[in-house]
Design a protein around this nucleic acid. Structure first.
Lengths: 338, 338
DNA sequence: TTGAAAGCGCTAACAC
DNA sequence: GTGTTAGCGCTTTCAA
């Protein structure tokens, strides 16, 4: 049906091997021959059959991304960064959306991965050690984003530092009762580190870490709203809250709105992410370079897939930036509450 | 290196042909044989080589999604819906992020597609007829989302009706000077229809369509903000604005905030999308079932890929729902402006 | 119901 | 620098 390498070989008056070499830019081909082959191939509108090429070479020229979600800001942004570099290198991108590890059954992604990709990028699959171990077992080069794993290169922020920055910012503003909205009860490394950063900042300032001032937000807007509502119903509510993600902070803001409390003026809120819409909601947040993290992970993976193993840094920590907005104002201007 | 069909055949005491048939659930296999083959395969942890299978059968078992963006709400949500059904059918998903057709060079996605997928889903590539024609030329079954094309099944909303609904809602509230924020000057079919719906509602109510009350928002938050700002600087600004997407409406709200104008109370805003965060921003919007649209397109495509061609509806129009929120309040409660 | 065998279209030794 | 050739691991007639 469609044009094969043999047709091209015939038309160019060379062997299929030469066509293969010429078209792939391999050495030991006469420049003139190469040019002729290229021209003929183009004229015939020849495209290599990926299946055949893959079968013969053992390489797929594709990278698999394993991510819990596609449709959330952090993940789609990471994905876009990854796609950006893969596209530039003509590498295919296949996506496995595996869902929330704590609720989804943990499908056998591992079986579905074999022979389909030359490498994989795993995006923050926290609390799911067994699945990750399974994935790594198939022996593909891997790159992690937002999580670390022994022996696997990764791109992360310094979660503890980011949390410390956010919390310290609230402390500097004069707050003393600072609540916290973590994601899920079962802590991932990343979440654990953010907790740690929060506590460090608190105790470093001689402040109490009141367990009553903690409410889980499950990394969603709705969860953040519920969490904030819970915090507000405390006998002695916080005057400031650190949320571990922007989405949860959004929810918290919504809760405040519902209660007629003005974020910033009445209760300060700071979080981590740098979500597109944080500016719109006037949310103070510690921004992470999410798309860039995707790009870096892809770049690193590609590097290792091509074998140049030496210069690969194991764990990259990218910088974050505190962006101060209206959701955090000095305590002098903050109305007493409760 | 890894286990092949021959190993399994040998271990099960049958031919490779039988293993192939047994494992794929083809008929004409003794139930007992099938069971034995299955067991052996499982014990050996055998996984079919996709490349070999693809080369031999000519089918890839993968669907390609061609989308301008990954990291924007509409697109990531569609993608997630698609992924949802593909994952369930064990079909691979490969993604091509082609960028904004009006600015990106229009890469030869078409060459990169051949032999890599059995079908494709094209997500709202407006104003880009040449590229689409190229894509369709390779003869893969296709499914469109958010755009229609002669002969290609699609899933869309009724754009004109959605725009009419939003505009009529503003009219019903008592507004007469109603501005509009479209996306890009070069209209896609979808955008054209939304314009049409807006004009129909306006003229139907005997209202003027003032060209001065139109400012493009380029489907982004920043663009929407600029557009609203432009509208506000009119000698006689609108009292209500219809934005063609939630993102642009978000930007418009931001502009209002910056100008000390309260959305809803001072100027009404309505748009189309049903963005996750619309509730948070108290935005009235005509919601489209985005993830569901992705699911439907995938389902339809899969159906056609499996050959059951008859029952495929060509163009599906999914319903939208007006969700009224604080950004639109009756004119009685709207302060005069300007 | 099962097996033998001919490819699928390419790559990679190895010869020349 | 180029050609020959033997696979890569499966699917799919065609016979049995």
């Amino acid at each position: 049906m469609s044009i094969t390498i043999r047709d091209v070989a015939q038309a160019a008056g060379v062997s299929t091997a030469t066509v293969s070499r010429a078209l792939r830019g391999l050495p030991h081909v006469d420049p003139e021959t190469r040019e002729r082959v290229r021209r003929v191939a183009q004229e015939m509108d020849y495209v290599v059959s990926p299946s055949a090429s893959r079968l013969a070479s053992g390489r797929t020229g594709t990278v698999a991304v394993i991510t819990p979600f596609i449709d959330r800001w952090f993940f789609s942004t990471v994905l876009s960064g990854i796609s950006d570099v893969l596209q530039g290198r003509e590498v295919d991108l296949i996506v496995f959306e595996v869902g929330d590890p704590s609720t989804s059954p943990g499908l056998p992604t591992e079986r579905r991965l074999r022979g389909r990709a030359d490498g994989m990028i795993v995006v923050t699959l926290p609390t799911d050690a067994p699945r990750i171990a399974d994935l790594l077992e198939i022996g593909l080069p891997a790159s992690f984003i937002g999580a670390t794993w022994p022996g696997v290169p990764s791109v992360c922020i310094d979660d503890a530092a980011a949390a410390r920055t956010a919390t310290q910012h609230l402390i500097n503003l004069g707050h003393q009762r600072i609540g916290i909205i973590p994601g899920r009860p079962a802590a991932s490394t990343s979440q654990g580190n953010r907790s740690k950063g929060y506590r460090e900042a608190m105790t470093g300032a001689g402040l109490d870490v009141d367990p009553a001032l903690e409410a889980h937000g499950y990394f969603t807007v709705a969860g953040g709203e519920a969490a904030m509502t819970a915090l507000l119903s405390q006998p002695n509510p916080p005057t400031a809250v650190f949320a571990m993600s922007d989405d949860m902070a959004f929810g918290a803001i919504r809760s405040l709105q519902r209660h007629g409390i003005r974020p910033g003026s009445d209760i300060a809120i700071a979080s981590i992410d740098g979500h597109d819409l944080a500016e719109l909601l006037d949310l103070t947040t510690v921004g992470q370079p999410v798309a860039e993290m995707g790009r870096m992970a892809a770049e690193a993976l590609l590097g290792r897939m091509l074998g140049s193993d030496g210069d690969t840094q194991q764990d990259v920590v990218v910088p974050t930036t505190l962006v101060v907005r209206g959701s955090t104002v000095p305590i002098e201007r903050t109305a007493a509450f409760g």
